[in-house]
Amino acid sequence: MKKLAIGKIYLIFVFILLYLPIFYLIVYSFNSGQSMNGWAGFTFNHYHELFSDARMIEIVLNTLIVAVLSSLISTIIGTIGAYWIYQTKNKKIANRILSLNSVLLVSPDVIIGASFLILFTVVGMQLGFLSVLLSHVAFSIPIVVLMVLPKLKEMPKTIIEASDDLGATGYQTLSNIILPYIQPGILAGFFMALTYSLDDFAVTFFVTGNGFSTMAVEIYSRARRGTSLEINALSAIMFLVSLFLVLIYYFISNPKKGGKK
């Protein structure tokens, strides 16, 4: 019992350490003072400021559009890719592609961002919405592949055989059996891609331009100019949104709660 208590205390300690800065930030978003040096009183002023900041709202919308679009596109491409890797007879090629996939996943964002910047300049593409979207799609695909592939591998091959035996065509088996089976992986991939895109800074920082900006980049540039508690307010909202996403993901991956039919 004692051991358990110590373990619990340790766990609580770690979580406090991890969440303290975020809560510190959130608490000060309600500070009526102008900086984070000392509490002056409670106010919603910074939120008002934030919502009347047209440029900021535009940036938030941009960020959301890029996130949703890029995760949708990368989910489709990534799922197809994972399925291709799964069904290919040539294990050597499949393994090589999978390794390349992992390399993209672990290579530093700075490198990916820089390489995209070079690519876009060479091709002569204007930096802006499209370049950001394309690079987000690119770094999200490996994430989706990584989430979907295990689901495919875990699926018993024999249920495909059974579907075949009962008269299904390849397409019918795919839509009736395989897709429903790997659906949790696809959703997980989508939400992962969404969160990666929402908070990506490094890659976006390289490939953005022409007045186009996302939240992460904007917060960075504003924080450099000197702190405004508006940033705190924005961070608080972003934190709540990600919390919400995590909750959605949790309920999708644990469907036992709601009775199906």
Binding site: T158, E161, S163, D164, D165
Partner: peptide, 22 residues
């Protein structure tokens, strides 16, 4: 002739029921 065009059906050793259906 592929399996899905034959008028024979199989009961498998490990049942192979579709887990996403009741």
């Amino acid at each position: 002739l592929p399996a899905n065009k034959r008028e024979v059906n199989t009961v498998f050793q490990n049942y192979n029921l579709f887990p996403n259906m009741n």
